[in-house]
Design a protein around this nucleic acid. Structure first.
Length: 792
DNA sequence: TCGGCTCCTG
DNA sequence: CAGGAGCCGA
């Protein structure tokens, strides 16, 4: 978890995919030129298939050459492209041909496979390519017939039977036609092949041909054969092919630069790519040019595909025939154009929005959120941050020293705060609390830098990826020295500590001061489970507002006002976090589940509800006097944030910081129970990571040294930090105070020490640790004294 | 006796 | 996260 800038910088390439410079014509895979020499027979302007794709609601990813339904869809496309001219007479060959001539195919395929196994050198590539072209053609023919059959199931078996009869009659003639077409296609494709060959070099093409040939063999076996090619033992081979394709089909497809199969927009591949992206990024430049360009295409596509069923949907999967390539290219071009256009619109809207919020007088300066987290000095600075959020200028008074010196003033201030909270007008933020659904890491990784800059209050991201060139980095990565911890001397790791640190320390610290000087970005932390590109997020935002609350747009102008009115809302209603996790995929019905049943049952509304009406579930708990009989989810979130400062709050402390709660025995117990649960989680994690560290220390070198303890740290780039942040600061809109990190480190080391020395055999071994941690509480920032929910 | 805490369970 | 049991100290 590190500076937010880093994560956004990391996502920059993907965002670039939307900039106009990457228009569809610039994309190699979309460029019309490569298809110039392609056999045109089956190409049609894919108007209908395109729309068909766009209208695919499910967005289910389809694997190439995979399941029958995949083929069905593809066949329909072929059907729709006017291949009907060959008519029902071809239907008859669907089964007939498969039974008749497939043997040759398989024999040839066996031969090819054998050859492929024996010879991998480039010299065979050309020869193979001819075979591939042939097979491609066969496959296409087969698909056409299959499409005839599959695409018209509505008409029942009658037409099929009729077609079968017609097929018998014209069987001979059609074979001749097919052969002619095959020859024609061969020639054209061969010419094209030579072009490609020249362009990309023999070796590369040889490999690609090898792969493609293999894959084509698979598909042909899968799809059934042509009329002039026999079929035998198909099942066995096909099964094998399926297996093989399951295993490495995606890789083959990804690596191949196949002009015959320009279908890089494959969900499977995209997702696979995303998983590999971190480690691939470095090596990508070293790949063949074709591969590199294809990467660009795929990256761009990935963003759209991530929009789930919105538009990417079903259209990319498995379309691989040259006959469809034109349509595919058209679809890709349109998709990219749409993508860039929508992205521009979204960017504009977001820019407008963020300008209004940034220019609002009560908005904190951008730098404030990235103040060096030197809460270690007592949290005073952090308090300043919070106070700055609440009321401009008040934060300046909040240095620790001043507070101690001006206790009387603070008392007055507290009175004022209490008045604010109990005033008849009601706390401004009370009615605007929000419950943003959080998707911390994934978003953070891929959110736009612009967004991030405009919303500096976002918590630190997890990733340690840096883009030092990013303009905001200098602002937000101050080089202030890390403050000394309060009570416990920090067991700062030695400078030499690196990779062999414990797993909760996956990389060098980039937090605060020590990290910014690291020359090279540390190894990336565990990748977020669901990276969310900006577009996805933006679309989610737009859809969550428009779909859930279509009336919202007209409320947009007033947003600035109520933002100013409620400082908490600076966090809570911030659009920087999607209201819906990726799960939703822009589908409101799905997104509804993402908020969790309990909160909804309690009257907690989704993000949109709060924004639209300024209502919040918390209001349901309000009594006439402005306090609540019960505890709302907002209170829970606030309590979690308070846990960053105090692990063992007293009842009085709780009453002080929850002025809007009407405390009774039950409520107090519940809140105390909350903190008890917080502690439990905290200690469980500490113990878990400490044990892991001990294990690793033992396995690392047979003679473990206690010096390893020095590597026990909880930097913002560690897994432990990520877990803690996710638990207590799920929406990640609050900057975890450095103080808490230090406390966590102390706890971790205490656990480690206890486990290391075997003290954990004592049933009460944790009590001593509890006692230590108990003393490390620090004052909660005054901002928490305000009623309401700080971050939603 | 009561409040608070930990531990366990669901 | 809540509920309950058990423990401890005021």
């Amino acid at each position: 978890m590190d500076s937010p800038t880093n994560l956004f910088s990391d996502s920059a390439p993907q965002i670039h995919a939307f900039v106009p410079t990457l228009s569809s014509t610039d994309l190699p895979g979309v460029h019309p030129q490569p298809s110039a020499g392609r056999p045109p027979p089956s190409f049609r302007p894919p108007g209908f298939p395109l729309i068909h794709h766009l209208l695919q609601p499910g967005g289910a990813s389809r694997r190439i050459g995979g399941q029958p339904n995949t083929n069905l869809s593809t066949h329909r496309h072929l059907n729709n492209r006017g291949l009907e001219e060959e008519g029902g007479k071809r239907d008859g060959q669907l089964e007939e041909g498969m039974g008749g001539g497939e043997g040759e195919v398989l024999e040839g395929e066996e031969t090819l496979l054998e050859v492929k196994k024996r010879h991998s050198d480039a010299a065979l590539a050309v020869e193979w390519s001819q075979d591939v072209l042939k097979l491609k053609r066969m496959k296409l023919e087969s698909r056409q017939r299959n499409g005839e059959a599959d695409g018209e199931t509505d008409e029942g078996g009658r037409k099929r039977e009729g077609g079968r009869e017609g097929g018998r009659e014209g069987k001979r003639r059609e074979r001749e036609e097919l052969k002619e077409q095959l020859e024609e296609a061969k020639e054209r494709l061969q010419a094209l092949q030579e072009k490609v060959w020249r362009a990309f070099g023999e070796k590369h093409m040889a490999e690609e041909e090898n792969k493609r040939r293999h894959r084509n063999g698979n598909r042909r076996a899968t799809d059934g054969g042509d009329g002039d090619i026999g079929m035998m033992e198909e099942e066995d081979i096909t099964e094998g092919m399926y297996d093989e394709e399951d295993i490495d089909g995606g890789e083959v497809e990804k690596e191949s630069f196949s002009l015959l199969s320009a279908s890089p927009f494959n969900n499977f591949h995209i997702h696979k790519r995303r998983e590999e992206r971190p480690k691939e990024r470095d090596g990508r430049m070293e790949r063949g040019r074709g591969g590199l360009q294809l990467e660009g295409v795929m990256e761009g596509a990935g963003l759209w595909l991530d929009c789930g069923g919105l538009i990417g949907g079903d259209w990319d999967g498995g379309v691989e025939d040259e006959g469809e390539e034109g349509g595919q290219k058209f679809a890709q071009a349109l998709k990219l154009e749409l993508g860039s256009a929508v992205a521009r619109v979204i960017d504009r809207v977001l820019r407008l929005y963020t300008e209004t919020t940034d220019s609002s007088p009560s908005s904190p300066p951008a730098a404030i959120s990235f103040l060096p987290s030197d809460m270690g000095n007592d949290g005073g600075r952090e308090r300043g941050v919070w106070t700055g959020l609440l009321t401009r200028g008040r934060g300046e008074q909040k240095t620790r020293g001043k507070e101690e010196k001006t206790g009387g003033q603070e008392g007055e201030r507290e009175k004022q705060l209490q008045q604010m909270s109990n005033g008849s007008a009601g706390p401004p933020g009370q009615s605007h609390r929000t419950e943003p659904s959080d998707l911390t890491m994934p978003l953070a990784v891929q959110r736009s830098p612009d967004i991030r800059k405009s919303h500096p209050l976002l918590g630190p991201p997890l990733s340690a990826h840096l883009n030092p060139s990013h303009p905001s980095l200098s602002l937000h990565q101050p080089s202030l020295p890390r403050p000394p911890p309060l009570s416990h001397p920090p067991l700062l790791p030695p400078a030499s500590q690196t990779k062999d640190a414990s797993s909760f320390h996956p990389s060098s610290s980039s937090s605060s001061s020590s990290s910014s000087s690291f020359p090279a970005p540390p190894p990336p932390p565990p990748p977020p489970p669901l990276p969310l590109p900006l577009l996805h997020y933006s679309m989610q935002q737009l859809f969550s507002r428009t779909l859930h609350h279509p009336q919202l747009p007209h409320l947009a102008p007033s947003r600035k006002d109520y933002l100013n009115a409620d400082p908490f809302l600076e966090f809570s209603s911030h659009p920087s976090f999607p209201p819906l996790p990726l799960l939703g995929h822009l589908d409101p019905s799905l997104a509804r589940h993402a908020h969790g049943g309990r909160e909804r049952e309690r009257g907690m509304r989704g993000d949109g509800g709060m924004r639209g009406g300024g209502m919040d579930g918390g209001e349901l708990y309000l009594t006439a006097g402005g306090t609540q009989e019960g505890l709302s989810p907002c209170h829970l979130k606030k309590a979690k944030l308070m846990f960053f400062y105090t692990r063992y709050p007293s009842s009085n402390t709780l009453k002080t910081y929850f002025p809007d709660v009407k405390f009774n025995r039950c409520v107090t117990s519940q809140m105390i129970k909350w903190f008890s649960n917080f502690r439990e989680f905290f200690y469980i994690q500490m113990e878990r990571f400490a044990r892991q560290a001990v294990r690793e220390a033992l396995t690392r070198d047979g003679a473990p040294r206690l010096g390893r303890e020095n590597q026990l740290r909880v930097g913002r780039d560690t897994e432990l930090y990520r877990i803690l942040n996710m638990h207590y600061n799920k929406s990640n809109v609050y900057q975890v105070p450095e103080r808490f990190i230090e406390v966590s480190e102390v706890a971790l080391r205490e656990f480690y020490s206890a486990i290391w020395t075997g003290r954990d055999s004592d049933p009460c071994w944790k009590k001593g640790i509890y006692k230590i941690i108990c003393k490390l509480d620090c004052p909660v920032p005054d901002a928490f004294r305000l009623p309401g929910c700080p971050v939603g």
